[in-house]
């Protein structure tokens, strides 16, 4: 235990844990090419590329994808503004209710998603608000704030407070200081937070089922396929594409914040 070589048992356990986390996702990639279209047979009886073409020609998949992308874009934008404002207020100053604000930001992901979902739905019911694009965005932006907030608040803490003073000392007013000093220093953290928020929104299903009404985001489309499989091969292809699409912002966020602060433990 004192040496810097890990015991064999630990090595095996750690490797097994990692494999457990990755093998199932890799399996998806194999199934996307199977010729079998009625069951989940393993090993696949044959391999084909034809389902990619079939999926490409499906308007319902495209519509769901487009809705998901639009929702994620708008929700991320709202979360960026709200999360940054909140982080700026909490990181820079001590004020009454500061702890409460942090808790309020974290609550939407700390509580199970179904509670956020059903709360929003009953509020829409009480307020006679019909389901729309914006009811989905409302829910998504609410739980995306925390991701941006966490990234921004960590960066604000690392950025020396005297930078702001130095800028004002050198003649810059509050707005110039924001533009020339604060924004450049938090930009990568915001970009990382925004990417994660995008991934989170793009993938969200639990809250969305309560706020979407008859609209279909890509995850809702997938959920229906899961509950009542009708188009297994198309689902396989969509699942693989979703994995690839969400990996990009995650890797991007990782490289942006690497070596500065961890994006760990931010949860979903």
């Amino acid at each position: 235990m004192h040496s810097d070589r890990a015991p064999l048992g630990l090595k095996i356990a750690a490797a097994a844990g990692l494999l457990f986390m990755h093998l199932p996702i890799l399996l998806i990639f194999v199934y996307a090419f199977t010729t079998e279209d009625k069951s989940y047979q393993w090993p696949p009886p044959g391999y084909t590329l034809k389902w990619f073409g079939v999926t490409w020609a499906r308007p319902d998949v495209w519509e769901a994808l487009s809705l998901s992308l639009r929702v994620a874009a708008i929700s991320t934008l709202i979360a960026l503004v709200l999360g940054t404002l909140c982080a700026a207020a909490v990181a820079r100053t001590r004020f009454f209710g500061r702890e409460t604000i942090s808790l309020l930001v974290i609550l939407p992901i700390a509580l199970p998603g179904i509670i956020t979902g059903i709360s929003l739905r009953s509020a829409f019911n009480l307020g006679d608000i019909p389901f729309s694009f914006w009811t989905i965005v409302l829910g998504h932006a609410t739980f995306c704030v925390v991701v941006v907030y966490n990234n921004a608040v960590a960066r604000f803490r690392r950025t020396s407070g005297s930078l702001v003073e130095a800028s004002m000392d050198l003649g810059a007013n509050a707005f110039q200081t924001f533009r020339f000093v604060i924004l450049p220093n938090i930009a990568t953290a915001l970009l990382a937070g925004g990417m994660l928020a995008f991934a989170l929104s793009f993938d969200e299903v639990i809250v969305t089922t309560f706020t979407a009404g008859q609209q279909q985001t890509l995850p809702i489309w997938m959920l229906e396929e899961l509950v009542r499989p009708r188009q297994r091969p198309v689902t396989n292809v969509v699942a693989m594409v979703v994995v690839l699409v969400t990996f990009l912002p995650i890797l991007g966020a990782y490289y942006l914040t690497r070596g500065t602060e961890s994006v760990a433990g931010q949860g979903k």
């Binding site: 005297s162 130095a166 004002m168 000392d169 050198l170 007013n173 000093v181």
Partner: peptide, 20 residues
Amino acid sequence: VPPYRRPVNTVFQDYALFPH
């Protein structure tokens, strides 16, 4: 009069150079 309109400038203890 706010800091940005005073005819004084400061050398900070931690220098506060803009890292970017």
